[in-house]
Design a protein around this nucleic acid. Sequence first.
DNA 1: TCTGGGGTCCTAGGACCC
DNA 2: TCTGGGGTCCTAGGACCC
Length: 425
Amino acid sequence: MKPCVALVDCNNFYASCEKLFRPDLQDVPLIVLSNNDGCVVARSREAKALGIRMGVPVFQIQEEIRRHGMAVFSSNYALYAEISARVMRILEDWVPRMEVYSIDEAFLDFSGMQTDRQRTDYGQRMRQQIRQWTGITVCVGIAPTRTLAKMANLAAKRYKATGGVVDLCDRARQRRLMSLLPVHEVWGVGDRLSQRLQALGIQTALELADCAPSWIRQQFSLTLERTVRELNGQSCIAWEEGPVPKQQIVCSRSFGQRVTTRAAMQAALCVYVSRAAEKLRQENREAQRLTVFIRTGAFNPQEPYYANTASGALPVHSADTRHLLKLALRLLEAIWREGFRYAKAGVMLSEFQEPGRGTQDMFEEVAVQQRSVRLMQTLDQIRQRGLGRVFVARQGTLQQQSWAMRRATLSPAYTTRWNDIPQVC
DNA sequence: TCTGGGGTCCTAGGACCC
DNA sequence: TCTGGGGTCCTAGGACCC
């Protein structure tokens, strides 16, 4: 049985989610902003047509926003995650095996489907059902390897005549498409690599595909060698069996307003540690290592720049917010410098173990450990059931959090909060 | 004035050991 | 003056992805 994989990718995902609940914005150019309303992370078809670039800082395009009457939304991840889950649930029923790759895309196992026609029809029917059941439009790229499926998907998005589904199992078609694509459009080739490749005279995807894998390995890396092999139809990325446990958990934010006092920084870290610890417990893991980082703004050359990181280990693995927080605050003391205007901070948890299997404290009483676990369970349940929010006092009340992130134009929680359910009048 | 957040994998080089 | 070689483990940093 020939291996075959389909990549299903939602079009303009965040922008499309916002439009689902705002039919009045159907043909209006719409952009979605990053956390803190900093830069553009998603654009509707119309906004792309106006030349709005991905990642551009919003303040640089204020004039265009006004002139074209663009709709602007702060990012609403709760909404996008919910719509994503609906799309993924539908896809699951179409194939024996699937891997969710990101919030808006998934790889599906299409092995066993014999003909070009069969595969394309299947893709079209999936696409139809997703649009009908969720309102989201997807494109489908089908090929023998993931790297080629990515490329097929790109073609499905770019060329209207394809009807949103491209089958790239035929070698001649693969080569024709690759000859048209600049090398930086290959999955796994970013800015740095494409510059180096171009310096060696490799401009197109096809030219990269025709390089000797061993030479690429020697000049670049194992990763790029795999890419070359994948472009030639040799699959180098295996299917994951079951969900992959995380190796690290990060919580970091830019501040809505610069932080200048130690107390405010401690409060912010407190929020980040609490959030990271919640995620850790959701993964059913305990962590041993915690890293804290802080930095000033990176873009203003006039302003003194300072950035630093401190990392430390807990004596035993833990998922208790209080233990992690104590370490975080101690680490902060090592890197905190007065007199800077801090723009961003974050914490990272790593070195995970399943509860009870990590380093243990021989002298701590079992009862104390059990109390810790039960306390954290209780906190999580209060939050998950929406009964309110219990937090560590140090983070301060919302009114005190002048550094909290800006979300000026957040859409309602249409799918996750009763009060925000859309009404039809 | 205002420029995101959360991940993964790989590699080079240092520390350490015998 | 001459001062080995090879292996492993860890970490920081680079590059990539969405």
